[in-house]
C-alpha cells in the first residue's frame, strides 16, 4: 500500500517561538488586531510504501522521533492518506 504522509512539526509548549512572536507583533501594523497565539512550525510531505496503515504509522512515528523532529523541543503530528495499493 502507498500512503501520502504529512508530518507537522511544531515547537513544544513552553519552548520560545521567536518566529511566531515576531509575526504576531507585526500583525497590528497591517490592521489585523484580533490575532493571537501565532505559532510557526514546518510540514514535511512524502510517500511511503508499507504493508498496512499500522505498519506505515509505526515507521513514520519512528522516523519522526529519530530524525524529523527533535523531541527535546518539538512535537510531531502524523497524518496518513492511502493513495494506492
Amino acid at each position: 500500500m502507498v500512503f501520502d504522509v504529512v508530518v507537522e512539526v511544531t515547537l513544544r509548549p513552553g519552548i520560545a517561538d521567536p518566529q511566531g512572536a515576531t509575526i504576531e507583533r507585526a500583525l497590528p501594523a497591517l490592521g489585523f488586531d484580533g490575532v493571537s497565539g501565532v505559532a510557526v512550525g514546518k510540514s514535511i510531505r512524502f510517500s511511503l510504501e508499507s504493508t498496512d496503515e499500522a505498519a506505515a504509522r509505526a515507521e513514520v512515528e519512528d522516523l519522526c522521533g529519530r530524525f524529523l523532529s527533535n523531541p527535546v523541543i518539538e512535537d510531531s503530528a502524523v497524518s496518513l492518506t492511502r493513495v494506492g495499493s
Binding site: 519552548i15 520560545a16 521567536p18 518566529q19 512572536a21 527535546v72
Partner: peptide
C-alpha cells in the same frame, strides 16, 4: 553533539530571532 545525543538538551533559535 546535541542532535547525536552525546550531549543533553537542544539549541533553539536565539531569543528575539
Amino acid at each position: 553533539l546535541c542532535e547525536s545525543h552525546l550531549l543533553p538538551g537542544a539549541l533553539q533559535k536565539n531569543s528575539g530571532l
